[in-house]
Design a protein around this nucleic acid. Structure first.
Length: 318
DNA sequence: CACTTGACCTGTCCGC
DNA sequence: TGCGGACAGGTCAAGT
């Protein structure tokens, strides 16, 4: 689900809300979502204060004053939602677990103590979520006066507690490409990195986090449409001028989406449970059957690099 | 080595 | 209404 603009929107929200908060307790029920030893959790997480919330690619980094960092990847359906506690009568929730899905250290899901609707009320983008925890809640950080919920319907996402100095060495960060919005990232860098994938198609190359960090299916389709490049075009056959334009369009598309609070298709919400509005401004993504905003030709959906792909057959020729 | 496919999960939607 | 299959915003490991 979340790509760079969505993760950045969450980061901005959490950076405003979390620094200075102390982790009082942690609850979780799905070890793959949080594969840390109880010993490390006790020693380096419980009692730790949050110093800073950062982002690298599609991953969030919550730095603690114990020299440990929580690394979080939301994958397709992850959410990270902050809720201020309100005095409210706890309600007992029935506990049903499906066979085969009971983790060894499964704990009883806590009582419902929070609700998030009030964050959405009156907000132009509305709210997607109701009472928390819900059945997709995998992890809860108790911050005393507030809670941070990690929800993940499909269970692909993860949270890992690591020594801060080890973070750059984990597989996910070892080979990750540059930040597309960084001032250090030039069109020349972009060309050089694409040259290493010159025989594959441009969409697969953009989705490859080693080439450039943070682009996913939505922004790959949007930036290729903006640069008038066919997603299935072989990288090596695309002109330098076109690649320069793609470089500019990637940055423009990502920047605009951050300004709009990201894209909400199904699950995505920001740190306060609010939807993003970028998809209202999207030109091709999920717009198959509608006219291309540039030429009026009907947008089509095909499959490129194993992913649903939206193109204008007139503007984006192979 | 470069590249593609399947696996990880749950939920939803569509056709029969 | 039920059931099977395809599909969904991401990344790995395993395969060719």
């Amino acid at each position: 689900m979340p790509e760079l603009p969505e993760v950045e929107t969450i980061r901005i929200g959490l950076q405003r809300l979390l620094p200075g908060k102390q982790v009082k307790a942690v609850w979780y029920d799905w070890p793959k979502s949080f594969p840390n030893s109880n010993q490390d959790v006790e020693k380096f997480l419980i009692g730790a204060k949050i110093v800073l919330v950062a982002r690298r690619g599609k991953a969030l980094l919550i730095e603690l004053d114990t020299k440990y960092t929580l690394v979080i990847h939301l994958k397709m359906t992850g959410q990270l939602i902050y809720v201020q506690q309100t005095a409210r009568k706890p309600k007992v929730e029935s506990q049903k677990s499906k066979a085969g899905h009971i983790a060894p250290n499964h704990k009883v899901r806590p009582e419902v103590v929070s609700e998030v609707e009030r964050f959405g009320a009156g907000h132009p983008n509305g709210s997607l979520i109701g009472k928390l925890p819900d059945k997709s809640t995998r992890l809860i950080f108790d911050l005393g006066d507030s809670k941070l919920f990690f929800n993940d319907q499909r269970k692909f996402g993860w949270v890992r507690l690591l020594p801060t100095v080890e973070v750059p060495n984990i597989d996910f960060f070892k080979t990750i490409g540059p930040e597309p919005l960084s001032a250090d990232f030039s069109a020349a860098d972009f060309h050089e990195r694409l040259n290493k994938r010159s025989r594959t198609n441009i969409k697969a190359a953009l989705l490859d986090q080693k080439v450039i960090a943070g682009i996913g299916n939505i922004y790959a389709d949007e930036s290729l449409w903006a640069a008038e490049i066919h997603p299935a075009a072989t990288v090596g056959t695309i002109s330098v001028q076109k690649l320069d334009r793609l470089y500019e369009e990637i940055r423009a598309v990502l920047q605009l989406s951050i300004e709009k609070g990201g894209s909400t298709d199904k699950n995505y919400v920001d740190a306060e449970g609010k939807k993003g509005s970028y998809l209202k401004f999207a030109n091709v993504f999920r717009r198959n059957g509608q006219p291309c905003p540039r030429c009026g030709t009907t947008i089509i959906k095909t499959r490129v690099a194993g992913r649903g792909t939206h193109t204008c057959p007139n503007c984006q020729k192979l």
